[in-house]
Design a protein around this nucleic acid. Structure first.
Lengths: 259, 259
DNA sequence: ATGAGGAATGAATCCCCAC
DNA sequence: GGTGGGGATTCATTCCTCA
């Protein structure tokens, strides 16, 4: 196992990394001003340029066939979906990235948000690469009707009753993946992060875009879920976070995972 | 029951309608050039302006608290997601519309398309209104984990094992709705349309944004699924389609539905 | 009737080969 | 070389047939 987590600004840390050394980047950056108290926040107007900046350095460290998956979803304010994600997507494309797909992470979890609206229960996983055909293994990540950590029921009117086992890997994954959110245990020092995404989701993304024994980078590694997923799947991991507390927390988490 | 279907260009037909007479607009317009042989196709570069044009007339016929749901998803070409939908969303907003939410229709159906990518199994439902708080009833459309036309299994860690009946309407719907695609029966004259969306999906959208006994407009009514949903739920319906064959087909379908 | 099994189908995408 | 059309690919679901 090779897993390292650095403390600092991700652009500066990436600058110290050799070019073309990373197979896949899997990350959940701060959503503009939504985690302001922890990460300082990025004004929505600056978010496209801020994203293009860190992705420019990511381009350098990424292999030619590597790719990037970014977890994000715009918030709603005054009943309107914020438009900074639309502008950011256009800015990323204008910077030369190929938008391969918008994948959907369907979360379980408790109802949140306005009672005048449907329950918000998904987030986008924006997938970018240097060209139109990066490395990807759509069969590695599981059956096509991917419902991870949930039980398999019948997905539709189908003659064969009862539980259906996960496929043996001959079917491509769906672009909608269902994974329940992890509970944010405030009392658990190892998981006390404002927005950790589930390890199973990181594993799904890694299986899709990281080759066996490859290297994954998470420039906003937070609680370290991408690192845990890497350890469990034999990928080398490089994590970066600007908050020292989370760096220490996730180092500890990886140490426990390896034990 | 009041249901009428007009033949013609939707802008011209809408011009004949009184202002402020429609509660909800539910539609699936042609996706740029994807149904070119049937509808002539709209060049991607023209698509934002084309959309803004018909929505301008839609604004006039829509009540102050009414809203619009548009079904669309960009195609992939050469490994890249087409960007015309992003530009169209920005253009719609620039025209004064409030983007309330991007809802997700998770389709069932067969895995087609590139073997190098996850199976594409969802489409977006873009929801627009004149302001930030249009009429909406998130509890009317069903249980929060909406899986329509499919059997209910356990969606997650849940005490009660086995099948769970649909809720009685106390829970808000999710922003991800699962409905299988309808089979395109080429031999069935009443359903011979290149891309009919399921009646159940139209019902779900109508329950969300159309008040009881309200009026629904579908400016690209195609095979008439929105009309069928309206008849089944007591909404008044106005459909418009540019292809006479589909107008006749859907009139026939509504006649059978009423019988 | 009921259920098992086979065949057909699908808002696709990509590759490849004429022209 | 660029452009455009035809064919291969792929499997969940539906439909149909037959025991």
């Amino acid at each position: 196992m090779t897993a390292e987590i650095h403390h600092g600004d991700c652009i500066e840390v990436m600058r110290t990394m050799p070019g073309g050394s990373v197979d896949a980047i899997v990350t959940s950056p701060p959503y503009a001003e939504q985690r302001k108290s922890t990460y300082g926040g990025i004004p929505e107007a600056d978010y496209p340029a801020w994203t293009v900046a860190w992705m420019a350095e990511a381009w350098r460290v990424l292999k030619p066939n590597g790719s990037v998956i970014i977890n994000i979803r715009p918030h709603i304010r005054n009943g309107q979906v914020s438009d900074y994600v639309l502008h950011t997507r256009l800015a990323i494309r204008a910077a030369g990235w190929n938008e391969c797909e918008e994948l959907i992470w369907k979360k379980g979890g408790p109802p949140m948000g306005s009672t005048h609206r449907p329950r918000r229960s998904y987030e986008s996983l924006l997938w970018y690469a240097k060209h139109g055909r990066p490395y990807a293994d759509p069969k590695a990540a599981g059956p096509s009707s991917t419902r991870i950590g949930l039980e398999y029921g019948r997905l539709g009117p189908h003659r064969h009753s009862g539980q259906r086992p996960p496929s043996t890997g001959t079917a491509r994954v769906s672009d909608v993946v269902e994974v329940n959110t992890v509970r944010n245990k405030k009392s658990d020092g190892l998981n006390d992060h404002p927005a950790p995404f589930p390890v199973e989701l990181a594993e799904w993304m890694g299986k899709l875009i990281c080759p066996p024994n490859g290297t994954i980078l998470d420039p906003f590694s937070g609680s370290g879920s991408t690192g845990v997923a890497s350890v469990r799947n034999g990928w080398k991991f490089v994590g970066i976070d600007a908050v020292e507390k989370y760096v220490e927390m996730s180092r500890e988490r990886l140490k426990e995972e390896a034990a």
